[in-house]
Design a binder for these strands. Sequence first.
DNA 1: CCTCCTTTGACCTTTTCTGACCTTTATTAT
DNA 2: ATAATAAAGGTCAGAAAAGGTCAAAGGAGG
Lengths: 151, 151
Amino acid sequence: MGLTDLVAQFIRSALESDQSLELRRGELAERFGCAPSQINYVLSTRFSPEQGYIVESRRGGGGYIRIRRVEAGPRLMLMHALASVGNSIDAASAAAVLTNLDAAGAITPAEGRLMAAAMSERALAGVPAERKGALRAEIFKQMLLTCADAG
Amino acid sequence: MGLTDLVAQFIRSALESDQSLELRRGELAERFGCAPSQINYVLSTRFSPEQGYIVESRRGGGGYIRIRRVEAGPRLMLMHALASVGNSIDAASAAAVLTNLDAAGAITPAEGRLMAAAMSERALAGVPAERKGALRAEIFKQMLLTCADAG
DNA sequence: CCTCCTTTGACCTTTTCTGACCTTTATTAT
DNA sequence: ATAATAAAGGTCAGAAAAGGTCAAAGGAGG
């Protein structure tokens, strides 16, 4: 497992006990023996707002980085998801939406994986790049509607 | 025996002890003194889903290739369904396959509906008629693969 | 000879990690 | 107060480390 995943795991497990976490970038970097900017990389690739996290920070003396997990209720999440899809969406964003829906209990993990598969780059390879986003959005909305229907 | 079969043999015997195997493409290529892309050839011709294998991979630093053998039971049934899909499929045939899988207990009704939605005429409206079947097949296969993957 | 399977190599994309340089905030000296 | 300094964190480009794709050359068998 790479450095990025080690750090991400460390943060996640810290977030399990406390639901909001505050840390020093420099300290964390030192603990893992890496460049401080590596921490920013971890945060931006693993703890983005899209993935359901809020990251705040402050510079200067006594600076810090605070990480929080945000979750809304299942119903609200589904509404929000449907609204947020729009006319076009890329695979990474769709996956992030699904992760949040799963976390909120609005869909099951199996449903999440299934939907992600249907919209994956792999599934849509062969579709012209300029149409891919729109098609993915259509598929996504149909599936979300089906979920809402059943639930 | 050609290179391809040698590598395939190696992988198969590794899969006998461990039921899931993770390897480096570059390392394997070096061990057999061949081009890295040869490994992809082996995987696609000898370890395809149709043949009962699931192959996942990741690029970038710390990348890997993971190969798993699918055992008999509902999973294998999904793999067979996958094989039967072919390069193109119409909505009616897809629905029939889903009905069978559901009846056999290989998928849940909810999963069936979800898959049907992803492949529906409505979701794929806007795709040129001559490409629709192939696209539906791709989406279907990715979803079936994901079902087999789960658990 | 023709066809199908193999093998390679050139080129591409994705993911990770670092280092140089920048901005913000707090503290300390004048 | 003000200016200098120290102590954070932020950004970004680029190198490095994987794996992916595809067309074309090579070979074995019919």
